[in-house]
């Protein structure tokens, strides 16, 4: 394993059969994300970015190829081991339904520590600090229904990071937010990925959000169409519109 690489894939393929015909939703993708790097996955609908994210998060088993997180090959794991791995080593935010509706912001963040059996006084303090860092110190005891969409996404970000995962994955986290809040959320997300030295991957339709990423992988028909690495290229792509 190369030094500093937290997440990598090798010739990753996911095949499906549709009307008797086999097609590859993800077609032999190899990539690597280092700790502290924030990568954007963009592409039109059906390009395979969500399927790729599902495999990176151990929610979907590849047809062939490998996903390696923190030195562990997910393909070698049983279903039970993958569930445990997700709990301990992966942080996740989703497009919607991110939070447990009957838990407060603080309880939602602490839940990740509970699931790992790590909720103690230090964990509680860390949860409060992280929420405060995300500008939610006055919302600790609010239920999701008492918070805006942007606030809920920030709570989800805190939950995705609180247990010190190796990788943090975000699936369209700004889909239900207005532009201003979307920028706030992704900017904060990027800052925390850098600060906490985690490997971050964000799937987004909204190209404006990739401004905050370090690298952008553009997908088309299950393949990597292009990789944007320089700030200029990324800014140019981001300026091309909401996606």
């Amino acid at each position: 394993m190369n030094e500093g690489i937290a997440l990598s894939t090798e010739s990753l393929v996911k095949s499906y059969e549709l009307d008797g015909q086999k097609f590859n939703a993800v077609n032999g993708i190899s990539l690597a994300v280092t700790a502290g790097e924030f990568v954007g996955l963009v592409g039109p609908s059906g390009s395979g970015k969500t399927t790729l994210l599902a495999m990176l998060s151990a929610l979907l088993t590849p047809t062939t190829g490998k996903v390696i997180i923190d030195g562990s090959n997910l393909s070698d794991m049983s279903d039970k081991q993958r569930v445990e791995f997700r709990r301990k080593r992966v942080g996740f935010t989703f497009q919607a339904n991110n939070l447990i509706p009957y838990l407060t912001a603080l309880e939602n963040v602490e839940l990740m520590l509970r699931l790992n059996g790590e909720l103690n006084a230090a964990g509680r303090a860390r949860s409060r600090d992280l929420l405060a860092r995300l500008g939610l110190s006055d919302r600790l005891h609010n239920l999701p229904s008492q918070m805006s969409g942007g606030q809920q996404q920030r709570v989800a970000i805190a939950r995705a990071l609180i247990h010190n995962p190796a990788v943090v994955l975000a699936d369209e986290p700004t889909a239900s937010l207005d532009t201003e809040r979307a920028h706030q959320v992704v900017e904060t997300f990027a800052q925390l990925i850098h600060e906490h030295k985690r490997a971050g991957v964000i799937v987004t339709h909204d190209l404006r959000m990739i401004t905050y990423t370090d690298r952008v992988i553009q997908m088309r028909d299950g393949d990597v169409a292009r990789i944007y690495t320089s700030r200029e290229e990324i800014k140019e792509l981001a300026a091309s519109g909401p996606g």
Binding site: S57, L59, K80, V83, E84, R86, R87, K88, V90, F92, F94, A96, N97, N98, I100, P101, M112, L115, N116, R159
Partner: peptide
């Protein structure tokens, strides 16, 4: 369903 799906995605086991 979405809530349970999210719980499982973040690592809650079926038995939980």
């Amino acid at each position: 369903v979405p809530q349970v799906g999210m719980l499982k995605a973040i690592g809650a086991a079926n038995w939980m």
